[in-house]
Computed example of a mutant assay.
Amino acid sequence: MQLVKDEHVQSRFSNTFPRTVEMVCPFCLKEAVFETGTWQEHGRQVAASELTCARCEEEILFVQLLQSDGTRKEGGLYCYPKSGGREPMPGVEYLQPLSAPLARSYDSALKLYNRAEWGAAALTVRHVIAGLANRLLGDDKRDMALPRRLEALAQDVDLARPLQDVAQLLAPGGTFGRQFEDEAAIDKVTAELLLELAEQMITYLVVLPGTMSDLKSRIATAPVPLRRGSSSGSGSGAA
């Protein structure tokens, strides 16, 4: 089951249950409108309906969680099988303060991908990568070729700064360091913040390098499509 965000619901019945939902169909992989017939309540906790893709006419099961009074629960709409679309990356909200145009480019790339416009999506992604390098680099390096700009990020961007900040927080005189002097005085908020800090460190030090290594391996072994007009033969030999 996959959560369906409220923004995908285009219209609702008078009881506020979804009537039409717009999302990428898992069968035809096209952005389409799904139309529902009736919702059937099950056990006073959920209601279910089969919505039909207006493009390929395949059906998807939608489940709506209910509150104790029988009304729909906010943020409680799910579908099976899951949408064929790609959801925005976690933390994408931090892109907007860095560069609004860059955030819009990322959103465009996602929409193009979800419409199966692979070439346009790939070009837009490259634009996002180039734009990100430009925003983080100094003016003197922005005219370099993209591979050189990416290599220069290691010198221009202080990648060690997040760990330095953590070290200061956990130092004996730091915000968290002082609280370890009296374990019994640590409250829920502090414990939650420390747990989140540990999770961010795991993401930064373990998950990111691991996923980058996996992606590099997948890129290295991915089949390379032939260019248009190229010959699959080995060429003609001399007589």
Rank of each mutant, 00 (worst) to 15 (best):
W39Q: 02
E31T: 06
K188E: 14
C28V: 11
L77F: 07
D6M: 08
S231D: 06
P147I: 10
S108A: 15
E22D: 09
V92E: 11
Q67K: 15
L136I: 03
S231R: 06
S231W: 09
A198D: 04
D143C: 08
G235F: 10
L146N: 01
S49A: 11
Q45D: 11
S83E: 01
F17W: 12
P97G: 06
Y80V: 03
Q179H: 04
Y94K: 14
D187H: 02
N15T: 01
A100I: 15
L208H: 05
A103K: 03
R55E: 05
S68C: 00
E93Q: 13
S232H: 09
P162R: 03
D140L: 10
R135P: 00
A122M: 07
T221F: 10
D139H: 12
S105L: 15
Q67D: 13
D6I: 02
Q200P: 03
G177A: 03
Q2K: 13
V206E: 12
V157H: 02
L195I: 05
L193K: 13
V128W: 10
P88S: 08
L51Y: 03
S14N: 10
R149H: 11
H42K: 15
D158Q: 00
A122W: 03
R115W: 04
D140N: 12
V166F: 04
Q164M: 08
S213V: 09
L3K: 13
S213H: 12
G76P: 11
P209S: 08
I129K: 05
S234A: 15
M212W: 07
P209N: 11
Y78Q: 00
P18I: 06
S83N: 04
K111I: 10
C53L: 00
G131Y: 11
E74T: 14
K5F: 14
G91C: 02
P209V: 08
R178F: 01
R44Q: 14
V46M: 13
G210D: 09
G210R: 06
T124D: 11
P26F: 02
A133G: 04
A191V: 08
R227A: 15
N134A: 14
A198F: 04
R12W: 07
S236K: 08
R72W: 05
N114G: 08
G85N: 08
M23W: 03
G37T: 12
K30M: 14
E35S: 13
F62S: 02
M1V: 10
V207Y: 10
E87T: 13
H127Y: 14
G85K: 04
E181L: 14
N134Q: 07
Y106R: 12
G173F: 04
T203I: 11
P26W: 01
Y106L: 15
R86E: 12
Q179F: 00
A198H: 12
T36I: 09
E57G: 02
M1N: 13
S230D: 13
L208F: 10
G174R: 01
T16M: 05
A54F: 00
Q40Y: 12
M212C: 10
R148E: 15
G237T: 15
V4W: 00
D214R: 14
K141W: 02
G138M: 08
